[in-house]
Nucleic acid binder design. Structure first.
Lengths: 184, 184
DNA sequence: TAAAACTGACGGAATATTCCGTCAGTTTTT
DNA sequence: AAAAACTGACGGAATATTCCGTCAGTTTTA
């Protein structure tokens, strides 16, 4: 409970002010929790960031894979999963900003990234199938997945920044672009 | 001279340790400059970041557009420019990391982004021409440009992270993917 | 009622920022 | 053209400020 409040407060403050400008005291205040309590749960500001990252990725994957069934054409599965990614971020702009800002941060170690990204390996199975069927350009499943993910990430950044309103047709066209980019 | 040393030192330290973990004293030491001198040129750590951003984007565009001529087919111009972007970042990994890390940072205001991105508007002319010729999907030139840029940015992050070695063929395939994604 | 969780005031370490003496280079005076 | 006066960039010691992390006291839980 308190732990989640702290993570939530940290997420909000880090995104809006930047890591360097946020103090533990501010986080405690935002979380409506004593400073000491923050230290009960986390050893440092950096650890808070790491735990936000892990928690966030876990919630993200829960959202994405909830209701996912490996039925229908490969293309429809592709669309389903990536659309979920897009919708998750559109509905959670703070989480998106956080995800983008810290993706390349030296605070997050390779191990943390590996753990946090575990769930996303399911995407690779999809891409592997596509490769078997010669649907995609000759790269590894992992690289194709990372490529699409990067594209979506970047696109969302400016889409949100420009407060572009994103309707179903926009998403459909965008997914088409993602598909076309890796199509054989 | 001293100013550049400070910016260079800041770039290196921010990328390797993260903004929050770097002190002005460290920057001064790395730049082989007195602490007071840092304050002669910059008002605060945040201002250093902003000036690095502006300087970096300016150097990047100088590199990209140097030798660029609006000759040849649209596709060859497309390839030329984006290949320059890719090569600039491959040759300047610190700058790339910095660029990626701070792209979504709250330290950089809209104004700074606008000023720093001014030079990149030339890309839009190219895309506008493509749109006139019905070569591209029906989006604005700006959006198409941002889409390609996002794609490249994201791709490079992973490529560098995985220490993937990137030869001419890889770049060519990648540019093909960029083209295919926006092609009508 | 004992244990666990929580709180926030506090001391001191870390850090940002200021301030001033120095001196290499430049201009003015004689 | 030599000497004197001036200038302001510079470094880093000194100061001001912030922030961390602890712990004694309080509240909640079981």
């Amino acid at each position: 409970m308190k732990r989640e409040q702290i993570l939530k407060a940290g997420l909000k403050l880090f995104v809006t002010h930047g890591l360097h400008a946020v103090t533990i005291a501010q986080i405690a205040a935002e979380a409506k929790v004593g400073i000491g309590t923050v230290y009960r749960y986390f050893g440092s500001k950096e650890e808070i960031v790491q735990q936000i990252w892990i928690t966030q990725k876990s919630e993200e994957s829960a959202y994405i894979f909830n209701k996912y069934t490996q039925q229908g054409s490969l293309r429809s599965q592709f669309d389903f999963l990536w659309e979920r990614v897009i919708r998750y971020f559109l509905e959670h702009p703070l989480e998106f900003q956080f995800s983008y800002q810290f993706a390349a941060s030296p605070i997050l170690t390779k191990e943390i990234h590996e753990v946090a990204m575990m769930d996303f390996l399911k995407f690779d199975e999809l891409y592997a199938m596509g490769l078997e069927q010669n649907l995609f350009k000759p790269l590894t499943a992992r690289r194709l997945r990372l490529f699409t993910f990067s594209t979506i990430n970047g696109w969302l950044l400016w889409a949100m920044d420009e407060k572009m309103d994103i309707d179903d047709a926009t998403i459909a066209l965008f997914l088409q672009m993602c598909w076309d980019s890796i199509k054989a």
